[in-house]
């Protein structure tokens, strides 16, 4: 949420920076941002014009907008709010819709975007999560998904018990990609089966009651590809699988694996190229076996 901004990309370089060019280029990038001042308010489009510089990304565009705080027509406007942190596609913060498609803003290079559409770059908040403000959305549900499937290794505690289980290189190579999931929410945004759940605090409702009600609402919705994949990650771990049944119970509960419609957008948009559909199919298999076993064991 802290937004540091550089208005000029020479910043930080030494003396030679003084010589940088006034007449470099006069190209202008037109940016259209779908803004919303607060939850429950009407959204509106706002246009910005940014002087072109080489090697920009969408983050640097938003930084310029914040620094100038002026719309294309010259009006003073509040800076566009957006989420970001690492700027190297590893923290999962800056997910937004760039030209209609979900992706990380930090790796959305302006030169590439202009190749596709030189007229304009369009920025919108994710549509599957409640808008907090402008491009900032509330992705609590993503993390709630991890709670639902108990995405952790159920260790006794953090005191020394020697090394972990031995794991073959093959199993490590299988697990590692799943473990790079940064909870960015791209898979959920692109999923046609994942629909927005927005719970509004009622008049006089306590924060705790509201939180509980929101969680209950989340728990009825589709848990999502990322959480299914994490469940499979931990069900494959020698210690993690000790609560495999609990994860499968969650995955076969309401909003579980069955909600997947096999559109496979998740794997297509995942910035980390995580084999999400493989995880989903494996979860399907595990659920099949588990459900049948349950039927006959009971």
């Amino acid at each position: 949420m802290i937004q540091a901004v550089e208005t000029n990309h020479d910043a930080g370089d030494v003396a030679t920076a003084a010589g940088h060019g006034a007449g470099a280029t006069s190209r202008t990038i037109h940016v259209r941002v779908l803004r919303q001042d607060a939850p429950g308010q009407e959204s509106y489009w706002e246009r910005h014009a940014i002087p072109y510089e080489p090697n920009m990304n969408v983050i640097s565009i938003l930084q310029r907008i914040a620094a100038t705080a002026r719309a294309e027509d010259g009006r003073s406007v509040a800076p566009v709010a957006w989420d970001c942190n690492c700027l190297e596609e590893v923290c999962g913060s800056c997910t937004m819709l760039v030209n209609g498609r979900t992706r990380m803003a930090c790796t959305a290079l302006v030169d590439r975007l202009l190749e596709d559409n030189s007229e304009e770059i369009e920025l919108r908040p994710m549509s599957k999560f409640p808008v907090v403000r402008d491009l900032v959305v509330d992705r609590r549900r993503v993390f709630r998904g991890l709670e639902r499937v108990e995405a952790w290794v159920p260790v006794d505690g953090s005191y020394d018990h020697g090394p972990g289980p031995r794991i073959s290189p093959e199993d490590q190579e299988d697990a590692y990609p799943l473990s790079t999931c940064m909870s960015c929410g791209c898979c959920l945004e692109a999923c046609p089966q994942y629909t927005k759940i927005e719970v509004v605090q009622r008049e006089g409702e306590s924060a705790e009651a509201f939180d509980a009600r929101r969680k209950a609402a989340f728990d009825r919705g589709f848990v999502g590809a990322h959480a299914i994949s994490q469940a499979m990650l931990f069900n494959a771990h020698p210690t993690g699988r000790m609560i495999a049944d609990e994860r499968l119970a969650a995955l076969t509960g309401e909003g579980g694996i069955q909600m997947c419609g096999n559109a496979q957008n998740c794997v297509a948009v995942c910035p980390k190229h995580i084999p999400l559909t493989r995880s989903i199919a494996r979860a399907g298999r595990a659920a099949t076996v588990w459900a049948i076993k349950k039927l006959f064991d009971r």
């Binding site: 209609g100 498609r101 692109a190 046609p192 089966q193 629909t195 909600m259 419609g261 096999n262 559109a263 496979q264 957008n265 297509a268 948009v269």
Partner: peptide
């Protein structure tokens, strides 16, 4: 019921799998 609960988005994500999802 499933169709009613989904939000086809093949316009934004014209991938083969998504086209098939929509066609299905």
């Amino acid at each position: 019921a499933i169709i009613a609960g989904g939000l086809p988005n093949v316009g934004s994500y014209p991938y083969v799998g998504n086209v098939r999802y929509t066609l299905q």
